[in-house]
Computed example of a mutant assay.
Amino acid sequence: MTQKLVAPLAVAATAALALPAAAELKYENATGGSVKIYGQFSPAYQSVDDGQDRKNTWVDNAHSNTRVGLWVRQPDAGGEFSFNFETALGLRSSDGVSQTFTPNGAEWDRTKLRKIDFAYTSNSWGKISAGQGSMATDGVANADLGSNGMTTYNGIPDFAGDFLFRGPNGALSGVSISDAFTSLDGGRRARIRYDTPSFAGFSLSAAWGKEVLSKTNNDEYYDVALRYANDFNGTEVTGAIGFSRRDPETGGPNVDDTIGSFNVKLQSGLVFTVAGGSRKNSGSYGYGKVGYEADWLAAGATSFAVDYYRGSDFVVSGSESTAYGIGINQQVDSLNTQFYLGYRRHEYSEPGTDYADIDAILVGARWKF
Rank of each mutant, 00 (worst) to 15 (best):
P8S: 03
P8M: 04
A13S: 08
T14P: 03
A15E: 13
L17M: 06
A21R: 12
A23K: 14
E24L: 03
Y27R: 06
Y27M: 06
N29H: 07
N29W: 08
T31W: 09
F41E: 04
A44W: 09
K55L: 14
T57G: 02
H63T: 05
V68A: 10
G79Y: 11
D95L: 02
D95R: 00
Q99S: 15
T111K: 11
T111V: 10
R114I: 04
K115Y: 14
I116E: 13
D117F: 09
D117S: 10
Y120A: 12
Y120V: 13
W125V: 04
G133Q: 12
G139S: 13
A141T: 03
L145I: 03
M150W: 15
N154C: 07
G155Q: 11
G155W: 09
L172I: 05
S173Q: 14
V175E: 13
S176W: 06
I177L: 06
I177D: 07
I177K: 00
A180P: 07
G187V: 13
R188V: 10
A190T: 15
A206W: 07
A207H: 00
G209L: 06
G209W: 00
E211G: 05
L213C: 00
N218D: 15
V224H: 05
L226V: 14
Y228H: 13
N230R: 00
N230H: 08
V237D: 14
A240V: 05
I241Q: 12
R246W: 00
D256A: 08
G260R: 01
G269C: 03
V271D: 14
F272E: 02
F272M: 03
A275R: 09
R279H: 05
N281M: 08
W296C: 02
L297C: 02
T302V: 09
F314P: 05
G318K: 11
A323L: 05
Q330F: 03
S334P: 02
G342F: 03
D354R: 15
A356G: 05
A356F: 01
R366A: 03
